[in-house]
Design a binder for these strands. Structure first.
Lengths: 235, 235
DNA sequence: CAGTATCCGATGCGATACTG
DNA sequence: CAGTATCGCATCGGATACTG
């Protein structure tokens, strides 16, 4: 009805309805999650929502811009933008967090763990990795998921001077720590439904290399934002 | 992919994604808003989402049941149910509240006020009316929206012994207070973006009848759950 | 009243290819 | 790399009618 993306198809003045018009379309909340994590570039956003088509992402970004949630700021290259949250967008953090907290509390982890994806996991881990327990020198950690097909089987996290890089091809540095794990176990640890220790004991994770790095893994592995939220699903 | 309503179409283990699968379909959040306000019966739910088809409401209720958010408990009449939130459903309150709070803060009220609906407004007012400032005897308040077509122009709130009834046809009681208002002004007051006093001064609301009732209107009118949230939209 | 069945149309969205 | 253009299906959801 209204010009701005039909901000009235529910026909209700209730602010819940108005917010739902903006936020409750497919993929939108996940794009916002990525933006709230600090991602600003189109193809970086895509890494966070790999199953979303670029066409649809482009469309959603325009919608969010129209809704006043993000601003597309031009870069040096013409036609290329950085997508930044406006104040209204930044204020969506509690909304997205409430979704995640609820999901962590009430969706069975066995269901979540059906959606394994090494790229997503590594991309998340890169973002949340905590460098404080790590030595100041460059550290290279290699993750190997034996059951995954070759292209996504092996990953390298290169931590250097506080910055973290993720590589899907061998960067050639010496490896400080080898992590060999089932994808499911590593994801479970990341989500906070298991721990490094437990998975090592269950022989699902194997660490080879620097002892200190190995012992502090539960620390430097930052874990998901929602890892501390306890499941409330009755078993 | 999974049997339970394809709880994996985003292909992500992230709890935000899992929650979005359950919650981010059309009308779902508004149905939940109604349930959280205490509504349990099919046709009462419909009053809260009048533009939603009964077929779709039925479908959504089944989905929510499958997701473990509500339970359909049989009533005395066979085939008739009460829809009650489970613990997981009750725990969605912060999610819905965060939507409403954000909407109230960031959606221009001029946009919300394009979606005027006297039935929705009165249905909401009935629910939130605060009986404590009212006398113990029966009180009948008549609302008149002159510009609205006849069927939805006149409404009666009958407050008696702590219970509030809403009638769209004259119940026949003596009227204690007549409220004559533009629908827009009454809605604006309800939403907290104006006040009874202001609208009276602007000659948009006119009160005739019991002086005490008239003076305490801003009190007994409960206002929307989000009325206290201040708009942050730059003017 | 409390829903269900059926139909059908719009459009949301996915797939693919293409451009600067 | 950073998106846009086009196509076409599938499904979502709206309208209407119907049942116990």
């Amino acid at each position: 009805m209204s010009k701005r993306q039909d901000l009235g198809s529910y026909g209700q003045f209730c602010p819940v309805a108005m917010a739902a018009e903006v936020l409750c379309s497919r993929w939108t909340l996940l794009v916002l999650r990525e933006l709230l994590c600090g991602t600003t570039r189109f193809n970086d956003l895509r890494r966070g929502v790999p199953l979303m088509s670029p066409t649809l992402l482009s469309k959603r970004l325009k919608e969010l811009e129209k809704a006043g949630v993000i601003a597309a700021v031009p870069t040096a290259q013409p036609g290329v933008f950085e997508y930044r949250l406006t104040e209204a967008g930044e204020d969506l953090r509690p909304v997205v967090m409430s979704f995640g907290s609820w999901g962590q509390r009430w969706v069975e982890s066995s269901l979540s763990l059906r959606n394994l994806d090494p790229s997503l996991l590594m991309w998340d881990m890169r973002r949340r990795l905590d460098v404080t327990p790590l030595p100041l020198r460059r550290c290279v950690i290699n993750f190997l998921f034996p059951e995954v097909n070759s292209a996504k089987r092996s990953w390298w996290l290169v931590v250097d001077g506080g910055s973290v890089d993720l590589c899907a091809t061998n960067p050639g540095f010496d490896i400080d720590l080898f992590v060999r794990s089932s994808l499911r176990s590593m994801t479970a640890v990341w989500m906070g439904v298991s721990t490094v220790q437990k998975e090592i004991e269950a022989r699902q994770i194997e660490l080879i290399g620097d002892k200190d790095l190995a012992h502090s893994m539960q620390q430097w592995l930052g874990l998901s934002l929602f890892a501390k939220e306890k499941s409330r699903v009755s078993p």
